[in-house]
Amino acid sequence: MKLYYFSVAGVLLSMGLSATELPDRQAQLPSVPKDANAQYLTPSALSTIPKGEFGDKVTKGYQLFVNSQQMRNQYVGNELNCVNCHMNAGNKANASPLWAAYMAYPAYRKKNDKVNSYQERIQGCFTYSMNGKAPESGSDVLVALSAYSYWLAMSGLMNQFNLTGDVPVLSDAELLKGGNRPEFPLPEVISAKLDQKALTMLPGRGFPKLDKPEKPYSIERGNSIYLAHCQACHGQDGQGVKMAKVSALPPLWGPQSYNWGAGMHRVNTAANFIYENMPLGKSIQLSVQDAWDVAAYINAQERPQDPRFKGKIEQTKAGFHQHDGYYGKKPQNVLLGEKAYPNFPEASQ
């Protein structure tokens, strides 16, 4: 993996380009068929987070994760919280849990054509899913979110192998890297049973891969499904529900939702997530066809611009959107992306 990264970097330098200037092939989030017999990690209860400096970082990471709006206008540019997609405070299997993601990085990503550390993966979430601004490398925010992710992963592994005691403390620099590296410190009883590859593919990672629909997905059918199953939480207009001027249930499109660069704007990614996790509290209620249709309806609505947009819809579409999505297309006789909302807007008062 590292050899490949450096060979790419060498090519870039010879071309006078940086990795951030490369076209994004926009690879979808990892998804594999769900295994009914899978054994998922069970991290320790939050009440067991230790006292002291390390525990304070873990607790802060949890707080930022479930209430990301406290970072609004600093790093967050919409009304979403991280927990809206990574459910049960990032702990739910098959909802892209943090414990599995942490053990999968560093990893090569087509998103920016380089090996990403865990902190770089989080920075991408702020830029795209949160329609905001990436926190600075090494910042307290990234350290805290990494510490929380690490604590979930390591406590879950320790519980699986019946190990007692506190989760080993890592330095900030080590926390930010992620767990997918040969030098990552693991208790011997765990490393003897799970090799590095197995740790990167923990059961429950990502969103389970959904079967293809029997019929081509339909925005029109998706509208009917949305009204029947989704509007109670997300509103008929898709703008979510606010309580005391605070977003309690997230907007799914429009100026306060994820932007055209977020992975969730892909119809297949959204379908995978919806089928497994929605409606909230009673998931796996929709048919496979319904999940694809409603994902198409949600993602055929305008949202904030792709942050990589440089003035031409067709150029952005060609470079970054060769997949199951509607950016730069006219699914309802309206060119999506042409009237996209701003990136990283200030919160409305």
Results as ranks from 00 to 15, higher is better:
Lys2Ala: 12
Tyr4Phe: 14
Tyr4Val: 15
Leu13Lys: 15
Leu17Asp: 04
Glu21Leu: 15
Ala27Leu: 13
Leu29Cys: 00
Leu29Met: 08
Val32Leu: 03
Pro33Asn: 01
Asp35Trp: 09
Thr42Met: 08
Ala45Lys: 15
Thr48Val: 14
Lys51Trp: 04
Glu53His: 04
Gly55Leu: 11
Gly55Ile: 09
Gln70Tyr: 00
Met71Lys: 02
Arg72Glu: 12
Gln74Ile: 07
Tyr75Met: 00
Asn81Trp: 01
Cys85Val: 07
Asn88Met: 14
Asn88Tyr: 08
Gly90Glu: 02
Lys92Ala: 11
Ala93Tyr: 05
Ser96Asp: 14
Ser96Met: 03
Ala100Arg: 01
Met103Asp: 03
Pro106Arg: 12
Lys110Ala: 12
Lys111Glu: 08
Asp113Ser: 14
Asp113Gly: 08
Lys114Phe: 10
Val115Thr: 13
Val115Met: 14
Tyr118Val: 02
Arg121Thr: 12
Pro135Trp: 07
Ser137Phe: 04
Ser137Lys: 15
Leu142Thr: 06
Val143Gly: 06
Trp151Lys: 13
Trp151Tyr: 14
Trp151Ile: 13
Leu152Pro: 08
Gly156Asp: 09
Asn159Leu: 06
Phe161Pro: 07
Asp166His: 03
Val169Thr: 11
Glu174Asn: 15
Leu175Cys: 15
Arg181Glu: 10
Phe184Val: 10
Phe184Leu: 12
Leu186Lys: 13
Lys193Phe: 02
Thr200Met: 11
Leu202Glu: 10
Pro203Val: 05
Phe207Gln: 03
Asp211Thr: 02
Glu214Pro: 00
Tyr217Ala: 06
Ile219Phe: 08
Arg221Pro: 01
Leu227Trp: 04
His229Pro: 00
Cys233Arg: 08
Cys233Lys: 08
Cys233Tyr: 08
His234Lys: 05
Asp237Val: 07
Met243Asp: 13
Val246Ser: 13
Pro255Cys: 05
Ser257His: 08
Trp260Tyr: 15
Gly263His: 00
Val267Thr: 14
Gln285His: 07
Ser287Ala: 00
Val294Trp: 00
Tyr297Ala: 03
Ile298Thr: 05
Asp306Met: 04
Lys310Val: 06
Lys312Ile: 08
Lys317Met: 11
Asp324Ala: 14
Tyr326His: 12
Tyr327His: 01
Gly328Val: 02
Lys329Asp: 03
Glu338Arg: 14
Glu338Trp: 05
Lys339Asp: 12
Tyr341Trp: 05
Tyr341Gln: 01
Phe344Arg: 07
